[in-house]
Each structure stands twice: as C-alpha cells, then as structure tokens.
C-alpha cells in the first residue's frame, strides 16, 4: 500500500499543499487534474526525484520519504517517456536489470517484450518507433524491475485516438497480468472516466477530498448542467 501524508512542496510560485493519498496494493488509481495543477510534481515526489518540504511517503509500511529514487523500487513513466536514445528497444527495457545486476536478464527482457507485444522490435532504435510503441517500451522498461508501484504521467495524451483506445486496452491487460499497483495522472477527463478505476481530483496543488466538491468539479469540467429539481413556476 502507498500512503502519502500531508505532503507539501513549493516549486517557484506553485505549491503542492497538504496532499493525502492512499492507494491499495494492485489498484489502478487515477488522479485527474487540469494542466499545471501539480500532478507531475506529485509523481516526482513519490518517485523520489523531488524532495518534499514536509510530509511523508510510506510504501508497504516503510517510510521512504528520505530514500533516494534508486532505493524505492518504483517504476516511473514520465510524460514524454524519456527513452534512452543511445540504446535499442531491448537495451532500454533491460536497463534497470543491468544496473541491478539481476540474473536471467535475457529471459526477463524477452518476457517484457512479450508482455507489451513488441518482440519484433527488440533491436530497433528509439528514433524509429511510433508514439504508441514508445509508450509501450517505456512501460516495459519501468515494469522490468518489478516495481512496487508504477507511476504513469499522462500515458495516453500524446497518442492519436485509435492508439489511445488500443493502449488503454493494453494497459488494462498489463495491469491484470502483472497485478502491479498503478498511480496514473492525467488531465484527460473524458478519456479516463469510463473505466472502473478509483479517481481523485487534483486542483491547484491540492487533492480535492470532499465528495460533493469532486462532483461539482466533474460537472464543471464535463460541461454538464445539473437540473434544478425544485425550479418551477
């Protein structure tokens, strides 16, 4: 289980304020929030790339707030993938395994290539991949280290609509197959709400807690106008 408690962090004029979050093991949670609301900042805090000013982050009961990223065992897929351009597809995927000097490197790399369905592209260079393929390689690279949690930053927003549909299905399958805990942030309200995931709302550096507030927020974002039932002549 991931627990974020009273997390705060200033970044220039922006501040992540008093964020509390709980994600159960194996859950696929989505944090929705408009552009610039602090979603990436929160993910970077959880990954250990940013150090929060206050608050704590717990994973499986262990306090990881002070741990550097390399000791958190978190899979991070950044907004624009950041695949290593000097390495091939399979070298990207096995990167974490090589750093950790883990055994059966080849088997695990092949398993990851199979998982994302890119076995044919293992020797391909990164530049020649399509946007959707890049996303899948980034997923495989993050999953190869068998992370406790997978952090996905806007995994679909750079894809066109067909790729989006396919990738969403792929992600659901990968989630079912690996059972990995996922925290997934996006500003794509419509695109994310038709699944049965748990959803939280981030607005201006805060996670919106109150249910009615969330409802009001979604209504506004999706453009629904609530019917005023008491209205009448």
């Amino acid at each position: 289980m991931i627990r974020v408690e009273n997390l705060s962090m200033r970044l220039g004029n922006f501040a992540l304020t008093d964020v509390n979050l709980r994600v159960q093991r194996g859950e696929h949670s989505i944090i929705l929030g408009p552009i610039g609301s602090g979603k990436t900042t929160l993910l970077k805090c959880i990954a250990g790339i940013y150090r929060p000013d206050s608050g704590r982050i717990e994973m499986d009961g262990e306090d990881v707030t002070e741990l550097p990223p390399e000791r958190r065992n978190i899979g991070y897929v950044p907004q624009d993938y950041r695949l290593f351009p000097h390495l091939t597809v399979s070298e990207n995927i096995s990167f974490g395994l090589r750093v950790r000097r883990s055994g059966n490197l080849e088997d695990r790399t092949r398993a990851m290539l199979d998982l994302v369905g890119l076995s044919d592209l293992s020797r391909q260079c990164i530049k020649c991949l399509s946007e959707g393929q890049k996303q899948l390689v980034a997923l495989a690279r993050a999953l190869a280290i068998q992370p406790k949690v997978l952090l996905l930053d806007e995994p679909f927003t750079r894809l066109d609509s067909t790729a989006k549909v396919r990738l969403r299905r792929e992600l659901r399958r990968i989630h079912e197959q690996t059972g990995v805990t996922i925290i997934h942030v996006t500003h794509d309200f419509e695109g994310s709400l038709n699944s049965r995931n748990r959803v939280a709302i981030m607005n201006d550096g805060r996670l919106v807690q109150d249910l009615s507030e969330i409802k009001k927020y979604l209504d506004e974002k999706l453009g629904y106008i609530p019917i005023d039932l008491r209205a009448g002549g």
């Binding site: 550097p68 990223p69 950041r82 750093v99």
Partner: peptide, 29 residues
C-alpha cells in the same frame, strides 16, 4: 540534455554517478 533522463535512470536503480556515466555521458558524446 534534459535531466529527466537521469531521473528515470535513478528510478531504474542508478546512483547519481551511474546515471551520469550510463546516461548523461553517452548522450553528451
């Protein structure tokens, strides 16, 4: 070179030095 490359390398298990040596340096070739 976007430091985000090194951040990703860190999450994959690299120390600061390894992220420099395995990612930043080859990209700076």
């Amino acid at each position: 070179i976007d430091p985000e490359y090194e951040s990703v390398a860190r999450t994959l298990g690299c120390s600061r030095f390894q992220a420099f040596y395995k990612v930043a340096l080859p990209l700076a070739k």
